[in-house]
Simulated scan of single mutants.
Amino acid sequence: MSDIADATTPAQRDARSAAGDAGDVKANRAEDGTARRSGQQVSPRKRRHSFVRWTRLGVQLVFLLLSPQAFSTAFSAARSIMVSLGKGEAIEMTGFTITLVALLVHTIVFGRFFCGYACAFGTLGDVLFQLGDAIRRKLRLRSLRVPDKVEDVLRLLKYLVLAALLAGSFLGAGSIISSASPWTAFGHLTSLSLGSMGIAGGIILLVLMVPMLLKERVFCEFLCPLGALFSLMPIIPRSNRHRNPHDLAGSAGCKRACPVRIYPPGEGRWMGECIQCDRCECVARPGCVTLGPALQRAEEALRHQGFACEARAACASGSQRPAAPRPSSYLFWHDYRTLRVAALALVLLGLLWLGGTLNYLPASPLVS
């Protein structure tokens, strides 16, 4: 029997995994709905999902309030560096440059946390997608699904956008790019200086907002030049998510739920696309997806995610691995992710303050 199972193709195994995971998700939803109607406690997995979603929203709002211009500041620094190189001038260490360098270092050490939690443009995309999703549900319309092969090709567009904008800045078109930049227009919008917003940039910004209503993080995945720059950075393995190699079926739904439609392993050609939204940890079976070292043992991974466990019954004869433990409760103050997100947010806020891009705080000593 095991020989027959081993003879199946990877596509067949993925299909079975996806079907099994879909069944688990439906069972979880039904169980949670029954629990709510009967007044019983919601499942630990559902509690963690809700906590992750609300804490992420809270962190996004903090960065939107304190540093809404970080995205436009960082990319303006990249363009100004290319302008200086094109003119043969020395690169000045301004607040813009410090912000760009700080974000690149933060990305190398911790992954694309800025994209998932701190980018105001990404938060705009999340808000617009939720608005569009509410309208689709009201009209009973399906969400937009891009075929996998088409999506793989479209992901390359942001690298072309990055190359074109940097090349144009190098060749002396920096002022034209700045006047027509939707990110510059968004920066003026968040700072409430609408009079300084260019007409071309405002129009392009409005055009970009339309697909944001239809697909989650569509700009981040297909068009964001700063995201392209971040995805080219080498991220240390400890900051990448990994799947449990003994429980691939448990993470089969990760790609479907991921905003940028990738699997969570920390290796592969799309490893730089992960925006650190933590959704794969919530969709997969508890303990199946987490940061690298925590996958050494299933019980350890569950403890890192704040779950208390109860042992499952012994596995049936002939099984090649023991049954995974079952979470019995969830305590957010024991969740490794809670401390991690708080620490990364504080570090990022400190770096943005050094670059002079935080509102309502004293000026940085590095920015004159």
Rank of each mutant, 00 (worst) to 15 (best):
A363K: 13
R241L: 14
V347N: 02
L139R: 14
I176P: 04
G350T: 08
I236E: 12
G111V: 09
S251L: 06
R56M: 14
T338I: 06
Y336M: 15
S231P: 05
R137W: 07
A167C: 14
R217G: 05
M233I: 07
K138T: 15
T99A: 08
L226R: 04
L61C: 12
C220F: 06
K138I: 12
S72T: 14
S43E: 08
S196P: 02
E31I: 13
V146L: 10
Q40E: 10
L348T: 08
S17G: 09
G201R: 01
L192V: 12
Q320A: 11
W183I: 08
T190A: 11
L171E: 12
L103G: 05
Y330G: 01
K215W: 04
L165E: 11
A185K: 03
G253V: 09
R217N: 10
P264K: 00
H188V: 05
H188Y: 04
M82V: 07
I135D: 06
S84M: 13
A118K: 01
G287E: 01
A301V: 00
D133I: 01
R140S: 07
L100N: 10
A343G: 12
G86Q: 10
D278R: 08
Q296C: 15
T73M: 07
R238V: 11
L104V: 15
P211E: 05
L366G: 11
F307H: 01
G356A: 11
L157G: 08
P322S: 03
I236N: 11
G111I: 09
E216G: 05
R47D: 15
G174I: 02
L346C: 11
G23N: 08
E221Q: 15
L65N: 11
F332M: 15
R326Y: 00
F75A: 07
P259F: 03
V150P: 03
G350N: 10
P147K: 03
V127Y: 04
S76A: 15
L351M: 10
V83Y: 15
A180M: 06
T73F: 01
G88M: 13
P362K: 10
L66T: 05
L361K: 04
P10K: 09
S67F: 00
P147H: 00
H106I: 08
S2E: 14
I275R: 01
S50F: 12
A252Q: 02
C254E: 09
T123Y: 12
L171K: 13
Y159P: 02
G272I: 02
I236R: 14
K215Y: 06
D133G: 02
G227P: 06
A74P: 07
G253E: 08
T94L: 09
M271S: 13
G201P: 00
P365T: 10
I108D: 06
G202C: 03
I108K: 13
A343T: 13
M271E: 05
G287H: 01
